[in-house]
Design a protein around this nucleic acid. Structure first.
Lengths: 220, 220
DNA sequence: ATAAAAATGAAACATTTGTTTGAAACATTC
DNA sequence: GAATGTTTCAAACAAATGTTTCATTTTTAT
């Protein structure tokens, strides 16, 4: 029933902790439920980790590092369009890929909604570089039509579409039953979000006709 | 320091509960902190409501009903484009409008991430009709180019962009400092998301060239 | 003004929960 | 095989928390 079997007791604890933390949140999760699910004694968490806080931190690091290695190709190798697609694919995979334990993305979604101190690291070390990667592709796509805050808006529009599916799973299931069920879900979603966003970026006019002093050009 | 003053003690409790629940979540919030913030005794929650659960339910209903009356115009009065704009505006207002207490949107975001039983009602009574309202506008925009699941994808793309700003406020502040600070934030965001989405909808090809049997048309 | 009802407050109660302890079981090493 | 270090377990502890009680104060109605 578990994801990665035949590991040490620490890993069994981490897996159980991940599931329970993801399901109930930090405050809702109890040490007793975690250890029961791991088939261990309550004292185990004090033995292998110091306390609940450190167990949580370890769980978070575990989830992130396990979900981290995704193929970001060399930028020169792909067109800007393809890079946007790769970005969306990777983000969705991290969140929704049924091959990796469901609680990874669930826990990350929780953290994005109300981050703990540990998560600040993850933001800086993982999110920020990926965002810059995406923004370079976007700049290549729109030239000087967008810059500054407008570029950030484009970025958040794309990321927002992706995170929505992870952070609102149950609401989506209620409103659009069946939408999340196809087994090639990630690929279909990635295709849609990429097409949607590329169509938008290509055909959209900037709000603030750029901060520079060049004349406003009719877009495309 | 509070939002709506000069109400009965129940309302003072509800306001305090809203802030604490929004800040700490249901499990993280303690009755003692809530009543202390409301300047009342712990017994008050048992007196006015039965227990913590019902206090939470009342808080949720309070937040939703207070945030519910937003102007959804008659459909005939506005163009499809304008209706998309109104939808986006209203969603963002509900979440981000600095005029209404911050915890309203915060609490709603928490519920969307991991809904309780009470929230099911809110989904059915409020979200579903609004979604249908948006989808009618989208159908008017794309004619028969999109249908079924594709229409749902369009819908979630729009909603996802809006909810992102509420559910990931802190992460956004880290990655894009200043993006959330302008005082006409809601209007700017609404304008961007609407333009972005309309440009996408108008220029995008459907993935599954519709389920009907008509020939695939080159999209305008 | 007086009685009834509503509201409040301090303390106590019963659980839950994070944490610790110390003994027993197990493994490893010399 | 004894000695040593490591891991597991049941029980206990202390603090926190939801809930209740009941006496007291305040308000309302007659």
């Amino acid at each position: 029933m578990n994801s990665t079997e035949a590991d040490g007791p620490q890993d069994r604890l981490l897996d159980a902790a991940g599931e329970v933390f993801a399901e109930r949140g930090f405050d809702g999760a109890t040490i007793r439920e975690i250890t029961r699910q791991a088939g261990m004694n309550v004292a185990a968490v004090n033995y292998y980790f110091r306390d609940k806080d450190e167990l949580y931190a370890a769980t978070l690091r575990h989830a992130h590092s396990a979900a981290c290695e995704l193929p970001y190709a060399e930028e020169a190798a792909l067109s800007a369009e393809e890079r946007v697609h790769v970005f969306v694919q990777n983000l969705l995979r991290r969140f929704l890929d049924p091959l990796r334990p469901r609680w990874h993305g669930q826990l990350m979604a929780r953290e994005m909604a109300s981050p703990t101190r540990i998560f600040g690291q993850v933001i800086e070390e993982a999110f920020r570089p990926k965002c810059a990667w995406l923004q370079r592709a976007l700049v290549e796509l729109c030239g000087d039509r967008f810059s500054g805050a407008d570029l950030d808006y484009l970025t958040t529009s794309i990321i927002g579409q992706c995170t929505f599916y992870r952070q609102n799973r149950q609401v989506i299931q209620s409103l659009f039953p069946g939408l999340l069920s196809p087994d090639n879900l990630v690929e279909r979603l990635a295709r849609h979000i990429t097409d949607f966003s590329l169509a938008a970026v290509r055909n959209m006019k900037p709000h603030h006709p750029s901060l520079s002093n060049e004349p406003i050009l009719k877009s495309r």
